[in-house]
Design a protein around this nucleic acid. Structure first.
Lengths: 159, 159
DNA sequence: GGTGAAACTTCTAATAA
DNA sequence: TTATTAGAAGTTTCACC
C-alpha cells in the first residue's frame, strides 16, 4: 500500500475536518490563506485516494443509556475456526470491534452494553458461539480517548 | 444521565448521519418524507441534548503507513498511581484509547504504529513510565469494525 | 498546481399552519 | 410539531493565471 504524500496544507485541512466535518470550506480557506476552491480540490483528492474514507457523527452512548464498556478476550477450541467464529461475533451488534490477535487470546473484542446485567447477556451470547471455549472479561471503569489530531501530527511529522 | 427519547424519525436521521455527515438535509427530508426544516430542527435538538457530540472524518491509517494495531495490558506497581499513569499514557500520541479496567490489568490501551519496529518503541515508552511495572502486548492480525448503525438499531429497539 | 467569481445547492430562521 | 419560503451561506466548476 503506497504512502500518500500530504503536505502541510493537506495536513491542516485534515486537522480541521477531524474536529468537525461540517466546517465550511470557506472557513478552512480563510484560516489557511488559500481559496475555497483549493480546499475543495484537495479534499476531493484525499477522498479519491482513500485517505479520507468517510465521515460519521460521534454519539454519546451514555446519554443513550449505554454506559457499559468491556473488553473480552476469547479462547478458541481450535484456531482453524477463527474466521467462522469472528463472523458469528460480528453478528452481535453490541460487539463494536473485534480483532484476531497474537498472545493469550485468539480473538479480542470490545463490547458496549447498557449495564452489567445487559453485558452478562452479551457475554453469554459470545460463550454460546460454537468454537469458543472460554472468555475473559475486562470491564472498563473509565475510558479516555486520545485526540485523533495528535496521532495525525505524529504521523505527519514522520512523512 | 437521563435517557433521551428518540422516535423513529430521529433514529433514521441518525442512521443517515452515521453513514455520512455531509448528506444534505434535503436528501434526508426526501427519504423520510418530511421537510428539510424539520430535519434541521431535529438534528439541532439532538446536538443540544448532547446525543450528537460531534463529527469526524474516518482516515485510512494503512494508507498513511500506519498498519500496526496492538492492545497493551498494563500492570501497575500500585493502583494509587492509576490517574497519574493514565495521564502519562495519554501523552503518547500512538495510544488511541486507554481504559482503567477491572480484571488482570489495571490499565488497558490500544496503540497504533507503523510496524513492529515502531510498535516496540511505543511499548518501550509505556514501560518507561513511572509506576508501570509490566506490560503485556496483544498484536492485532486483523481488525473488523462492526457497523455503528447496527448498534444504534439495537439501542433504538430497546427504547 | 492555484485563484476568483459565477452558478448552483444547501442551510437556517422566521412565519404560518 | 411541522411546513413553507426567502435570504444567507456554502459548494463546485471553470476560465485564466
Amino acid at each position: 500500500m503506497a504512502k500518500f504524500k500530504l503536505d502541510e496544507i493537506d495536513h491542516q485541512i485534515l486537522d480541521m475536518l477531524i474536529e468537525n466535518t461540517r466546517v465550511p470550506f470557506t472557513d478552512i480557506a480563510k484560516k489557511l490563506l488559500i481559496s475555497a476552491g483549493t480546499v475543495h480540490v484537495r479534499v476531493k483528492k484525499m477522498e479519491d485516494a482513500g485517505i479520507i474514507k468517510g465521515s460519521s457523527i460521534t454519539l454519546d452512548y451514555k446519554k443513550l443509556g449505554y454506559s457499559f464498556i468491556a473488553y473480552v478476550g476469547i479462547y478458541l477450541q481450535n484456531t482453524s475456526q477463527t474466521k467462522f467464529v469472528l463472523e458469528r461475533i460480528n453478528e452481535i451488534p453490541n460487539v463494536t470491534v473485534a480483532h484476531i490477535t497474537t498472545g493469550k487470546f485468539n480473538i479480542f473484542c470490545k463490547i458496549r452494553a447498557k449495564n452489567t446485567e445487559h453485558a452478562k447477556d452479551v457475554i453469554f451470547q459470545l460463550d454460546d458461539i460454537d468454537g469458543i471455549y472460554r472468555t475473559e472479561t475486562m470491564i472498563s471503569l473509565e475510558e479516555s480517548i486520545n485526540d485523533k489530531k495528535r496521532l495525525m501530527h505524529s504521523i505527519f511529522n514522520e512523512m
